[in-house]
Computed example of a mutant assay.
Amino acid sequence: MNTNKLLGVGEVAQRSGVAVSTLHFYESKGLIQSSRNTGNQRRYHRSVLRRIAIIRIAQRAGISLAMIKEHLDTLPQSKITAEEWRVLSFEWHVMLNDRINNLLQLRDQMEGCIGCGCLSLEECPLRNPDDVVAEQGPGAQLLKDVSI
């Protein structure tokens, strides 16, 4: 790395708006990388600021750190090309549209679910679409992996 492009941990924290401890946490999770100078102090390439911005925005959208890491692992730690950002953006666009559609469905159907008071979930479009849980047998069933 070119030393004139390296930033100390305090400067990265100030410029990115996250605490130093958050930077250390992100680094421990493999979301960002640093190098060490001769005094064993962390040094970050300026491109880390863009990665941190993406991490923070994705977290606010409810994307898990594991998923963020999975996507960021496809990109280099140094400067990222416009094509690389385009590919990542497209992948996230699809994922976010799916999440938005699920949230809209939940929002639009939740009121009916709260007001119905049913104890059987035979016709519930939120928790048991097409009565798929009936295949598991009678009585209360654990509703894992039933998609909205």
Results as ranks from 00 to 15, higher is better:
T3D: 06
N4C: 05
K5I: 01
L6I: 11
L7W: 00
V9C: 11
V9L: 10
E11G: 03
V12M: 07
A13D: 09
V20Y: 09
L23S: 03
L23P: 08
E27R: 14
S28V: 02
L31E: 12
I32E: 11
S34V: 02
S35V: 07
S35K: 02
G39N: 11
N40H: 02
R42C: 07
Y44P: 04
R46W: 00
S47D: 13
V48Q: 04
R50N: 04
R50G: 09
I52Q: 02
A53I: 00
A53Y: 00
R56D: 05
A58M: 06
Q59Y: 06
Q59C: 11
L65M: 12
L65S: 07
A66Y: 13
M67E: 09
K69A: 14
H71F: 11
H71A: 03
L72H: 04
D73L: 03
D73H: 12
T74E: 15
L75E: 01
P76E: 04
K79C: 06
V87Y: 09
V87E: 09
L88E: 03
S89R: 13
M95S: 07
L96T: 14
D98R: 13
I100G: 00
N101P: 00
N102F: 01
L103M: 13
L104T: 08
L104N: 15
G117W: 02
G117F: 00
C118N: 11
S120R: 07
P125L: 05
L126G: 14
L126W: 14
A134Y: 10
G139L: 06
A140T: 13
Q141V: 08
